[in-house]
Design a protein around this nucleic acid. Structure first.
Lengths: 157, 157
DNA sequence: TACGTTCATCACCGGGGTGTAGTTACGTGT
DNA sequence: ACACGTAACTACACCCCGGTGATGAACGTA
């Protein structure tokens, strides 16, 4: 049945805004693998958890922000090691090879002061929002197709 | 004679901390080209200005900070367009595809607030300092070799 | 004229993908 | 219960970027 336990590859791509090949590549190279179900051969399905989605979106944002995938790998590691934090209100800060999750704005500003070199800052709140939004959008679209196929016929006709 | 008008390739590498091949590649691909004298065939010399050195160092820092060369290219463009600013006290801020040179700490903090996505911040002051330091170091080393070869002989003997 | 710098060129490598053509498993209709 | 169509994953060949190493060619200078 259509019991959506987690998210499948193509859905994930739509939600986080990457290509399927990218998602595939990242899974193959171990950057983010589907934590609910790994693919076990052709025809099987990867199942990504919500947390996976957030990680993926973070990576996507980092790439858009000009960071290399190398850097993104480290960032993700950091994000994982910061267990059980209230993500939405935090900021991920990368300072050279050290990365930290700052939970208050003050922390970030402290890092800025006196720091030399490059600082990369990403606000988690916005990311979580975007992911949630995309999921909602997707659910709506699916509901439209599942419940009212006649409507679709009307529209197209 | 050894009249050092500007800086030659190998010196530049020593000062900014990159490999010669990198410098060469960057010059060939137009990222930073020697503004005092372009190479005109094998055996000629590239001559880099002080400003070039600073640009190169910025790029180096950005790379160390995890940014892609793509992003660094844009950053440099921005840095160039911000003419005649007192570099040492400024900060270069990259926000997605827009980049700005912020001349006060307040500006940076403003950018942080309410901004979603990734923000890359690099303090120019530290960079200028590092470049100056490296140049001084180089000059000292050269003076040692030029003025007191006997001393060098003593040390090595 | 011989030599040592310095630069140019070429072939090549690894990372990060992409496009296309298979190969399955799932879900479904019968 | 079974065949079938299709969605999803895999494998392979290929591309571009950012370099690197080796080699060769031009200077200036002794």
């Amino acid at each position: 049945m259509g019991e959506t336990e987690g998210f499948r590859g193509p859905q994930v791509c739509a939600i986080v805004g990457i290509t399927y090949r990218q998602l595939d590549y990242w899974a193959r190279t171990g950057l983010v693998r589907p934590s609910l179900a790994e693919a076990r051969g052709s025809g099987t399905q990867r199942r990504y958890s919500y947390r996976d989605l957030v990680e993926l979106k973070v990576i996507k944002q980092l790439l858009d922000g000009g960071l290399s995938l190398q850097a993104a790998r480290k960032a993700v590691q950091c994000l994982r090691s910061d267990v059980g934090a209230p993500l939405s209100s935090a900021a991920l800060v990368l300072a050279g090879n050290k990365s930290v999750v700052a939970h208050t704005g003050e922390e970030v500003i402290d890092l800025l002061r006196g720091r030399q070199g490059v600082l990369n800052v990403v606000a988690m709140g916005g990311i979580v929002d975007e992911v949630d939004g995309a999921i909602a959008e997707l659910a709506k679209a699916r509901a439209r197709r599942d419940n009212t196929p006649t409507l679709a016929a009307q529209v197209s006709g």
